[in-house]
């Protein structure tokens, strides 16, 4: 294990230190006094590397990452998990905007809430299957253009208006599934909500991820599941299919 004091370091210097540690074969890296440094873990490719972050990491945490596990012991900022391919990011707090943008694989667990544009254009391919679990509420544009994977919003915390998701959810969605625990309205998702309740079978699919969330952040699984879940899926897999004159 290696400890790096990130206090006062520019991100370029800090990330170079992380690369040096990775190159020298370190498997466990602990970063102390992190304060807004961007791109931590960006582009690292290895499944057995673990990075623990004390302090608040900056934007694009784990961008293009392929394998490592990142544990953030506080909140984090925008762009977490941008275009990430594989790995795990665990956030013991809230998260900013554009969480999990275009992620193709791996898992992100957020204990608290997340901002706007969460899970835009997530997609899956073969063994790569992205999973995003958010404990609290999320803002507008959740799952826009979503093409694959699973997005789960547990709604353990609600926003000021008592909502767990914002507006314009799943616009242009053409693949994957979104699970939402708690109440949603027709105007938030653009279709009637009655037929969208998740079935037993559906819930079995998210069981491992919700269990992992409970294990990570010390919640009671049975209590969480004892509430209705909505499942949102694409209206069509070909949103642009009938637009053109051939």
């Amino acid at each position: 294990m290696v400890r790096i004091d990130a206090g006062g370091l520019h991100y370029k210097v800090l990330n170079e230190k992380i690369w040096e540690a990775v190159d020298s074969g370190e498997k466990e890296i602990v970063l102390d006094n992190v304060c807004g440094q961007r791109y931590i873990g960006a582009g690292i490719k290895s499944r057995d590397i673990k990075i623990e972050i004390n302090g608040v990491p900056g934007n694009d945490l784990g961008a293009f990452m392929d394998g490592p596990t990142i544990i953030v012991n506080s909140n984090c900022q925008d762009g977490t998990g941008n275009t990430m391919n594989d790995g795990k990011i665990i956030i013991n707090g809230d998260c900013g905007d554009i969480l999990g943008f275009s992620m193709r694989g791996g898992q992100i667990y957020v204990k608290g809430n997340a901002g706007y544009r969460v899970g835009i254009h997530m997609k899956s391919y073969k063994d790569n299957f992205p999973v995003l679990v958010i404990g609290g509420f999320v803002r507008d544009f959740l799952g826009e253009y979503m093409a694959g994977g699973i997005l789960i919003v547990l709604g353990l915390e609600k926003d000021r208006d008592g909502k767990v998701i914002g507006n314009f959810v799943k616009t242009g969605m053409h693949g994957g599934e979104i699970f939402i625990r708690g109440e949603i309205e027709e105007r938030q998702i653009g279709e009637k909500t009655e037929d969208l309740l998740a079935t037993e079978e559906d819930l079995l699919r998210i069981e491992p991820y919700v269990k992992e969330y409970c294990e990570l952040f010390k919640y009671d699984y049975a209590e969480i599941m004892n509430e209705k879940f909505y499942k949102l899926k694409p209206l069509t897999h070909r949103p642009y299919g009938r637009l053109y004159a051939y």
């Binding site: 961007r38 960006a42 694009d60 762009g79 835009i120 253009y145 242009g172 053409h174 299919g241």
Partner: peptide, 28 residues
């Protein structure tokens, strides 16, 4: 499956955001 490229990059809504992606790629 349809391969849909959205009109904007949804992580780029400004020059500052563009800088962020440029340097994310440089860092990676």
């Amino acid at each position: 499956t349809d391969a849909i490229s959205p009109a904007p990059h949804h992580d780029i809504y400004s020059i500052e955001d563009l800088r962020q992606l440029i340097f994310a790629i440089k860092e990676a």
